[in-house]
Computed example of a mutant assay.
Amino acid sequence: MVQIEKIWLTDTAVWIRTADGREAHENFDEYPRLKYATQTQRENYEPDAFGIHWPELDEDLSFEGFFSKRNETALYKLFIAHPELNASAVARRLGFAQSLLAQYISGTKKPSPERERLILSEIRKIGEELIAI
């Protein structure tokens, strides 16, 4: 697990510094919810042992993801292409921890093929429910 010493924001990114002195950042432009958020909304984050959560924006970044090569998985592409999808709500519907789904989306953890099918099936159900309205 990555031990974080400091988190700070610039106009374009969120930065972290680890206890061993490494620094990394994630650009807001890569996350539509953060990209279009106000500075006040961006500043309203909650760190935990695994990452950063923005409750108002329903966005999560895992600390490990700051140091990982971007792995554009199917889930990553889906959630980036459709920022209207609420990852926290999808995780709740599936009974998953929000941080686990965030790690699947970021590619820091790989879901089993069965679990990925389950996630995609739940997203399809959400689409069907919206169509029925």
Rank of each mutant, 00 (worst) to 15 (best):
Q3T: 12
E5L: 12
K6N: 15
W8Q: 12
W8K: 10
L9S: 08
L9G: 06
D11V: 07
T12Q: 09
A13C: 11
V14L: 08
I16E: 04
T18V: 08
A19S: 13
D20P: 05
D20S: 14
G21V: 14
G21C: 04
R22T: 03
A24T: 05
H25N: 11
E26Q: 15
E26P: 00
N27H: 08
F28G: 03
F28V: 01
E30Y: 08
E30D: 14
R33G: 14
R33P: 14
K35A: 15
A37S: 15
T38D: 08
Q39I: 14
Q39L: 09
R42M: 11
E43R: 13
Y45I: 06
E46T: 10
E46F: 10
P47W: 04
A49Q: 09
F50A: 13
G51R: 05
I52P: 01
W54V: 05
W54P: 00
P55T: 04
P55M: 03
E56M: 10
L57P: 00
E59S: 05
D60L: 10
L61Q: 04
E64K: 11
E64H: 10
S68F: 13
K69M: 10
R70T: 06
N71H: 15
A74F: 00
Y76F: 13
L78F: 03
F79P: 10
A81K: 12
H82K: 13
L85A: 09
S88G: 10
S88I: 02
A89C: 01
R92Q: 07
R93A: 08
L94Q: 02
F96P: 01
A97W: 05
A97V: 05
A102E: 00
A102N: 01
Y104W: 06
I105K: 03
G107R: 07
G107K: 07
K110H: 04
P111A: 04
S112K: 07
R115M: 11
R115Q: 12
R117Y: 04
L120E: 15
L120T: 06
I123M: 12
I123L: 08
I123Y: 00
R124V: 09
G127P: 00
E128M: 03
E128H: 01
E128K: 06
L130C: 02
I131N: 05
I131W: 05
A132Y: 02
I133N: 02
